[in-house]
Nucleic acid binder design. Structure first.
Lengths: 159, 159
DNA sequence: TATTGTTATACTCTATAACTATA
DNA sequence: TATAGTTATAGAGTATAACAATA
């Protein structure tokens, strides 16, 4: 039995019934993440010439000078292999530098350059601007709440 | 002035300072979305042989028989061009069928087949299972809250 | 044997532009 | 002119497997 006699005319976009998906967390996660990532990527590329993950890299290296590539990737949820081109362009642009570890000759320690710290400062202002624009509908308390809940969800993948 | 004298030894992964990113909604959105999407995609591919967005398509067409491709794409946040291969495989698998509209000869109306309704039923059970597994750390109230907040964020992209 | 950084490569998902047929 | 569906293609972003150097 196929239900094709129900619709007798085209529907308007705002009449679409999505009631089932409305209760699915993963569905809204995909929608919201896509909206935020699209806007943020465009802004950070235009203003700072960076990919969004590269801003995270600058921030984490800035707060943890001497961190290794593997540690960095683990803390950001990025695989070792994918760190290579991300770091290569940051180093080529003079925003990060590498130094061999004294204790473990396999490890390359990462440090921000002064240019990298300036760039990170610019990026931080950019993030504030971006979040204030796209999260205008959320109060400060709601933003804290959503971060807390998203962190719980993200933790499910690192167990 | 480069801050490389601060770190004198490698850090353990759980000692990494990510305090700046911790307050950024977009950062946690990326992390959480990645965890959920990875697990869900693998399950739905293995069990139902579908991509995650295709499950959403089945659900929306099931609730809105006769919907057009453009309406469907708009309601799911998927562009017209990207709907084509998604729908092609669903039709090839006999889960959906198309019928020319009587009123507008440009429009193709979409209807679920009986096989599509069975598949949707399977997918719904899969979604419940997936969400219960990965959102175990969240109470029912917290899930409702996160959906409400994510919907507000997603709305920022459709204004 | 295990791990760090690396290379090469493939796959998924999304974006853009242009075409056709209808309106 | 505008819109629905389509085609072709490009670009992010991520995943997998294998390698050399070192532990």
């Amino acid at each position: 039995m196929e239900a094709h006699s129900v619709a007798t005319e085209p529907r308007r976009a705002d009449e679409i019934d999505t009631s089932f998906l409305d209760g699915v967390v993963g569905y809204w996660l995909r929608r919201a993440s896509h909206v935020i990532a699209t806007d943020y990527s465009a802004r950070v590329k235009e203003t700072a010439g960076l990919r969004s993950v590269q801003v995270s890299i600058l921030a984490v290296v800035g707060a943890n000078p001497g961190i290794s590539q593997t540690q960095l990737g683990r803390s950001l949820g990025v695989q070792r292999a994918n760190m290579v081109p991300l770091l290569a362009s940051l180093i080529e642009d003079g925003l990060l530098r590498r130094e061999p570890s004294d204790e473990d000759k396999r490890v390359l320690e990462l440090y921000p350059t002064s240019a990298g710290e300036v760039k990170l400062h610019v990026a931080k202002a950019l993030i504030d601007e971006h979040e204030n624009a796209l999260l205008a509908a959320l109060t400060a308390q709601e933003r804290r709440t959503v971060i807390q809940l998203l962190a719980k969800i993200a933790d499910a993948g690192t167990e």
